[in-house]
Design a protein around this nucleic acid. Structure first.
Length: 457
RNA sequence: GGCGCGGUGGCAGAGUGGUGAUGCAGCGGACUGCAAAUCCGUGUACGUGGGUUCGAUUCCCGCCCGUGCCUCCA
């Protein structure tokens, strides 16, 4: 079962071959915990969750590492402006992040290292870089010397000259070269800081990932993922640090990047007021609908996140759960080949989703109970491969918008019974009145061969 | 200025050198007391100008339009 992945390093789809035939190591850049996760933060989480599930299926053993950046100037700034302590802020934000991503059915990574727990490892790498002549101390900072690495810029395909031509760099006076970037910077007394050979300070952004990846996955590992925007400078600098500290050994063999998210055609921004947080969206739509929306576009394509898209995704899930509803109870079967093939082709989730539609149609068209059960099992397996259809169908149809005034289920059942009696007495006006009454409260009735079922619209 | 990505039917969104996915929306039909759900049928597409080819939406070149990154934004 070959897996092909688009490797940013070579800008083409490549056959994936792990370093070890029965184990895969994957590192994905995680959140800086200073604010609530927005829909753009959720895309890589969901995309790499699908990849994680697929890798586990194909190789059995996977070590998935996703870090928590809990030391950063944005955190310091936020703490200062809000008055909340850094520790409380990062703890609270991390908890919320876990809850939000869990609601999107994202599995927890195997290891979730925190930057503040790896300061010693960062210092060790920096020391090594200084010793090897790839970094230098200046004015309380330690900087990586970009000119010391002849093939710097391979991932982002930028030459040193091009970078200089960009010329939007605000050159700090202590830099030997404008491209040099910070590995360590000094902290004032009230800032978080750690003792180091260069004085009390804190790490630069890029070094965190180098240290945590090395610690948990080794010098060279299989897959490194993240958002497209991280290619430069973050991943480029990560590669520079790690390779120069490890005698030139490659960092990751496959670099996988997801595309950006826009909202209703606009780039997300707080001034435009189109900043959707996952937490808020979860009050309006089930997590699986948000997840499906994120998977409905290929991961490398730009994704325009819209309310219409959410509505469509919710409708698709209604259709699939409807197919799974009622007897016979589905039992997950083997993953249908077409779905597996779609996922193995560079994670073609939109194509996999079309197969889910076909599988749902097969359930509805099945003639015998045996056929139906088998078809349901296939649909379920296909959904689960995408991290969808993980709920009981009845629970899905009872989901309600947050804070809605809900009609009690017992009351709904009573009204359905009343309507049944009216229908049996051929009092259709009364039956329709009850149905309308329920519809006005968001309850949709469906009269089937096995009786009347209801769902929240 | 540099590096990069994309333009597919009313909408969303795959894919392919030659039988025009899939879903939503629309239309017609079956089923239903009427609906809903489901099933059956149905129309509309590949930014633009060249080139390669027996044949291009698919490969190559130009152009137009949109868009991302260029030191800490996923």
């Amino acid at each position: 079962m070959p897996l092909d992945l688009y490797n940013t390093l070579n800008r083409r789809k490549e056959r994936f071959e792990p370093l070890s035939p029965d184990h895969v190591g994957m590192y994905v850049c995680g959140p800086t915990v200073y604010d609530t996760a927005h829909i753009g933060n959720a895309r890589p989480v969901v995309v790499f969750d699908v990849l994680y599930r697929l890798l586990k299926r194909l190789y059995g053993s996977v070590t998935y590492v996703r870090n928590i950046t809990d030391v950063d100037d944005k955190i310091i700034d936020r703490s200062r402006s809000s008055g909340e302590s850094i520790e409380a802020l990062t703890e609270r934000t991390t908890r919320l992040y876990h809850a939000d991503m869990g609601a999107l059915n994202a599995l927890a990574p195997d290891i979730e290292p925190r930057a503040t727990h790896h300061i010693a490892h960062m210092i060790a790498i920096i020391q090594r870089l200084v010793d090897e002549g790839h970094a230098y101390a200046a004015d309380g900072h330690v900087l990586f010397s970009v000119p010391s690495m002849p093939d710097y810029g391979q991932l982002s395909r930028r030459s040193v000259d091009e970078l200089l031509a960009g010329a939007r760099i605000d050159v700090a006076p202590y830099k030997r070269d404008p491209q040099d970037f910070v590995l360590w910077k000094p902290s004032t007394a009230e800032m978080p800081g750690w003792d180091s050979p260069w004085g009390r300070g804190r790490p630069g952004w890029h070094i965190e990932c180098s240290a945590m990846a090395k610690e948990h996955l080794g010098v060279t590992f299989d897959i490194h993922g993240g958002g497209l925007d991280l290619i430069f400078p973050h991943h480029e600098n990560e590669i520079a640090q790690s390779r120069c500290a490890h005698s030139g050994a490659p960092l990751a063999r496959y670099w996988v990047h997801n595309g950006f998210v826009t909202v209703e055609g606009e780039k997300m921004s707080k001034t435009l007021g189109n900043f959707f947080t996952v937490h808020d969206l979860l009050g309006e739509y089930p997590g699986e609908a948000i997840r499906l929306t994120l998977l409905s576009t290929h991961y490398r394509q730009p994704l325009d996140f819209t309310r219409d898209g959410l509505k469509t995704a919710k409708g698709n899930l209604d259709r699939w759960y409807q197919a799974l509803r009622s007897d016979p109870v589905p039992a997950e079967t083997e993953l249908p080949f077409a779905v597996l093939a779609a996922l193995e082709d560079d994670l073609n989730t939109p194509l996999a989703i079309t197969h889910l539609h076909e599988l749902a149609a097969a359930v509805n068209k099945a003639h015998t109970p045996e056929e139906k059960a088998k078809a349901k099992g296939c649909l379920l397996a296909a959904g689960r491969a995408l991290g969808l259809l993980e709920q009981e169908p009845e629970a899905w149809f009872r989901w309600a918008v947050k804070d809605a005034a809900l009609l009690a289920e017992a009351e709904i059942e009573q009204l359905i019974a009343d309507r049944k009696a009216a229908r049996q007495a051929k009092d259709f006006a009364e039956a329709d009145r009850i149905r309308k009454h329920l519809l006005d409260q968001g309850i949709v009735l469906e009269d089937g061969a096995q009786g009347t079922t209801w769902k929240r619209g």
